[in-house]
Simulated assay, not measured.
Amino acid sequence: MELEQFKTLHTRFFGKELPEEVTRSEDYEAYADALHEDEACYNWAIAEKLKSKGFDYGSYCCLMLADKVYESLDEDGETRYDDPEVIINKWDEGLYGIPVHNGSATMVVINYCPWCGTKLSK
């Protein structure tokens, strides 16, 4: 799918509660496929989401890491330690880790981005 077509469909579908007849339409299926299978479309959508939330994603090695770090934060920008949906955290000290959901703030420190392989620096 061309990125411009994806942007148009994104405007129609993203962030809205859609009736079943819409989610079963060819346009929606093409949009969802592009979001999951086309890197340019995915990156554009993630960048737009992070920009709209005021999240500085430019300092991350890739948009996937930036998005997962953003998703690990609560409404006040604090790390959520007890949420099993969180798959990666970034601590103030610059460390990245995969949380161990055992009821505490335990994490497995990682040195490389799980998505792009870039060495993570402090």
Rank of each mutant, 00 (worst) to 15 (best):
S121Q: 10
D82G: 04
K53D: 08
E39C: 05
A47V: 09
S104I: 00
D38H: 01
T11N: 10
L18W: 11
V100C: 09
A45E: 09
G77L: 07
V22G: 01
P84H: 14
S104D: 13
C116G: 03
D92P: 14
E75R: 13
I46Q: 04
I98E: 10
P19S: 06
A32C: 04
P84C: 13
L50I: 03
D38Y: 00
Y31T: 00
A45V: 02
L65I: 13
K51N: 06
K16H: 15
G94H: 09
E26L: 09
D33Y: 12
E37M: 13
K90M: 08
T106G: 05
P114W: 00
W115M: 01
I110V: 13
N102V: 09
I110H: 11
H10P: 00
F55S: 01
R12E: 15
K16W: 15
G77V: 12
A105I: 12
E26I: 10
T8R: 10
E20G: 03
G103S: 06
K90F: 01
D83G: 12
N89S: 08
Y31M: 02
E20I: 10
D56V: 04
D82L: 14
P114S: 00
E75Q: 14
Y60N: 04
G54W: 08
E17A: 13
I110W: 13
D27K: 12
T11C: 02
S104R: 07
A45I: 01
E21W: 14
S52L: 03
S59L: 06
Y112C: 07
L65T: 08
D76A: 15
D67I: 00
Q5W: 08
T118F: 10
P114V: 00
Y96M: 11
Y60E: 04
E21S: 11
K119L: 11
V108L: 10
S121C: 06
Y42Q: 12
D82Q: 10
L18F: 05
V108C: 01
G77D: 07
A47D: 06
F6C: 05
K16Y: 15
S72V: 00
D82S: 12
L73C: 05
C116M: 06
D82I: 08
N111G: 14
K68V: 06
H10Q: 07
S121E: 13
Y57Q: 10
A34V: 08
T106W: 14
C61P: 07
I98V: 11
Y81D: 11
S72H: 04
E21A: 07
F14W: 14
E48W: 04
A40F: 06
V22Q: 07
L120N: 05
L73T: 06
E21Y: 14
A66G: 04
D27N: 13
A40G: 02
G103C: 09
W115I: 02
